[in-house]
Amino acid sequence: GPIMLESYRAIADYTKSSKYELNLKAGDLVDIVEKSQNGWWFCQCENHRGWAPAAYLEPLDDPNEAEEPEPNYAGELYKTIKAYTAVEKDEMTLEAGETIEVIHKLLDGWWVVRKGEETGYFPSMFLHKTGEKREV
């Protein structure tokens, strides 16, 4: 049968920063081909195809995005595979190889992580699941 693609609407203008991305204008409609957990979604828009940031897209059908998982305050253990330096106040700065707990996996690819007493947003793209159980 035909493949039904989900339609999303751009909520703001976005100018691409690399070759395989899509430029978006607020109000543009795109069909989603693939949703990557890292927050880049592969979309098609008329004759264009490319990656767009999920943060700039809202679903046409359900603006409340029921698919967004609930936070898990118990946390899931992940390891950072790349260092990231916070740009905004609510982000976390971490070195590569640090173990942290993921408490909320947001669709835009910026996950809420906890290390000790500190929490903040971190790019999911730089995280790898350890598969270990958290010590209680």
Partner: peptide
């Protein structure tokens, strides 16, 4: 390949457009 996703984290939305978060 065109299906290779960007290697940089996606941008965060402008603050006024951020989704409701718990």
């Amino acid at each position: 390949s065109i299906k290779q996703p960007p290697q940089n984290p996606p941008p965060r939305p402008p603050p006024e457009l951020r989704r409701k978060r718990a």
